[in-house]
Computed example of a mutant assay.
Amino acid sequence: MASTVLAASGGVKQVICISWGTKYGAPFINRLYAMVARNITPPFTFTCFTDNRIGLHPEILCEDLPPLDVEMPVNTRGIWPKARLWGEKLGSLKGPVLFLDLDLVIVSSLDDFFEIGDPDDVVMAKNQTTPLERLGQTSLFRFPVGKLLPLQQKFRADPQGVADTFRYEQRFVSRNAPGGVTFFPRRWVLHFRQDCRWPFPLNYVLAPRLPKDARVVIFPRGLLPQHAIDGKYGEKGLPTSPLQHILGVFDATKRRKKAPFRYLRHYIRPTKWVADHWRE
């Protein structure tokens, strides 16, 4: 028997993502689709809202980026172009949709994300970086098409002001979603840096772990799955042996202005389980 959430979308699990510009593109979208397909019970759809359809897997449903004629905020960390998805309509989709960022890693079944709550709920992954704040994470969240229209209207009226007030789009959604937000179980969606990598000095001898109850692992703030696979910390990092990295603490140019202890914490060993899951 289908859940009430699935009943609202005709029994189909609707997964969506968004892509614009050149930072990610087809390799990330195709990889995400493959992970979804391996970890979901049909029927399901995977829809990408994008400005470039070249090279995408034929099973991916493509829609144009929803129009949002505003000047996007500058000097803010929030991913505000996601606001394009908050309109009254969303392509041909109706009912609840599960949004996924392009740079997350799916490690187990997504089915239960369509079972929790009611069709009209906005359900977010819990943000672990601010444990004292009731803050959701928009790397993965479920919402019914059209429910967030009031947020889009507020954002359209003053994009820079909204961004300056809330800094991140996830805080704006958490605090302003009509009817409030609820959360998926905390351990379903894990933060790679916080939940998987080991603290110093264990990070030098143990590869990042994958907790058994994880469903999805997110990679926010510049540390991407390929970095974890390679064993480097971010775009500017270089794969090095543990000893080479430790000795780098005495070289300010290698530390790149990081304080010594912060530099030592920013080391990860190559992470095989990320490569096992993050693939087509």
Score class of each variant (00 low, 15 high):
Val105Cys: 14
Arg38Gly: 08
Thr41Arg: 11
Gln160Asp: 09
Asp112Phe: 05
Arg84Thr: 04
Asp103Ile: 07
Pro159His: 03
Asp118Ile: 00
Val122Met: 13
Glu63Lys: 02
Ala163Pro: 03
Leu135Phe: 06
Leu102Met: 12
Ala125Tyr: 06
Asn39Gln: 14
Val105Trp: 11
Gly117Ile: 10
Asp112Met: 13
Thr165Val: 01
Phe172Tyr: 12
Thr47Ala: 07
Asp101Tyr: 05
Ile116Met: 14
Arg142Val: 05
Asn127Phe: 15
Asn39Met: 06
Leu98Phe: 13
Ala163Asp: 02
Pro150Cys: 05
Leu148Cys: 11
Thr41Tyr: 03
Thr50Ala: 06
Phe141Trp: 14
Gln152Val: 04
Pro119His: 10
Leu135Asp: 06
Leu110Arg: 12
Gly91Ser: 05
Pro58Met: 10
Leu149Glu: 13
Gly78Cys: 07
Phe44Met: 03
Phe99Asn: 14
Pro131Thr: 10
Leu93Phe: 06
Val145Pro: 03
Glu133Asn: 05
Pro58Gln: 13
Arg77Tyr: 07
Gln128Asn: 09
Gly91Tyr: 06
Met72Asp: 04
Met124Gly: 08
Phe99Ser: 14
Leu90Arg: 10
Phe114Lys: 08
Gln128Cys: 08
Leu149Ser: 11
Thr41His: 07
Arg134Gly: 08
Asp164Ser: 10
Pro159Val: 05
Val162Ser: 02
Pro119Glu: 07
Leu68Arg: 04
Ser108Gly: 14
Ile40Asp: 03
Val122Tyr: 11
Phe114Tyr: 13
Phe172Arg: 01
Leu100Gly: 07
Pro42Ala: 08
Glu59Ala: 15
Gly117Asn: 12
Val162Tyr: 00
Phe49Leu: 02
Asp158His: 08
Ser108Val: 00
Asp51Asn: 15
Asp103Phe: 10
Leu68Trp: 02
Leu65Lys: 02
Leu149Phe: 08
Asp158Ile: 00
Ser139Leu: 06
Pro58Phe: 11
Thr76Trp: 03
Thr130Arg: 15
Gln153Glu: 15
Ile60His: 06
Asp51Tyr: 09
Leu102Val: 13
Ala157Gly: 06
Leu151Ala: 05
Lys89Glu: 14
Val70Ala: 01
Gly117Trp: 11
Phe172Ile: 04
Val70Ser: 03
Ile79Lys: 03
Phe46Pro: 07
Phe44Ile: 04
Glu115Leu: 13
Leu104Gly: 07
Glu169Ala: 01
Pro66Gln: 01
Phe113Tyr: 15
Glu169Phe: 02
Met124Ile: 11
Asn75Asp: 15
Pro159Lys: 02
Phe166Lys: 01
Gln128Phe: 00
Pro73Gln: 03
Leu61Asp: 10
Ser92Thr: 12
Lys89Arg: 15
Phe49Arg: 04
Val162Lys: 01
Leu104Cys: 14
Pro66Ser: 01
Lys94Cys: 08
Ser139Met: 11
Phe155Val: 08
Pro119Gly: 05
Gly87Ala: 02
Lys154Gly: 00
Ser174Pro: 11
Leu85Glu: 04
Val105Ser: 09
Lys82Phe: 07
Val162Gly: 00
Leu148Phe: 12
